[in-house]
Amino acid sequence: MSNHLHADLEKLEKRLLYLAAQVEDSVRKAITALLERKQDLALDVVAGDREIDEREVELEEDCLKLLALHQPVATDLRFIAAVLKIDNDLERIGDLAVSIAKRAAFLTTAPPFPVPHQMKAMMEQAVDMLRKSLDAFVGGDVVKAQEVLEADDAIDKLHKEIGREVIAAMESNSESVEPGMQLFSVSKALERIADHATNIAEDVVYMVDGAIIRHGLGVDPV
Rank of each mutant, 00 (worst) to 15 (best):
N3W: 12
A7S: 14
D8N: 13
K11M: 11
K11Y: 15
K14R: 13
R15T: 11
D25K: 11
D25N: 15
D25P: 01
V27S: 01
V27Q: 02
R28N: 03
K29R: 14
I31E: 00
L34D: 01
E36S: 06
K38M: 11
Q39A: 15
D44W: 02
V46F: 01
I52T: 07
I52G: 00
D53E: 09
E56K: 07
E58S: 13
E61A: 08
D62L: 10
C63F: 10
L66W: 11
L67A: 04
Q71E: 14
P72Y: 08
T75K: 15
L77E: 07
A81M: 14
A81Y: 11
V83M: 03
K85T: 07
D95L: 02
I100P: 00
A101C: 04
K102E: 13
R103A: 01
A105I: 03
F106R: 12
T108E: 09
P111H: 08
F113S: 03
V115Q: 05
V115R: 03
H117W: 10
R131Y: 02
F137L: 15
G140M: 11
D141N: 15
A145V: 09
V148T: 09
D156P: 09
L158P: 04
L158G: 05
L158W: 15
H159K: 10
H159A: 13
I162A: 04
A168C: 12
A169Q: 11
M170K: 07
N173H: 14
V177E: 10
V177A: 14
P179D: 05
P179T: 05
V186Q: 03
I193T: 08
D195E: 06
H196T: 02
A197M: 03
A201D: 05
G210E: 06
A211W: 12
A211E: 15
R214F: 15
G216M: 06
L217C: 10
G218P: 13
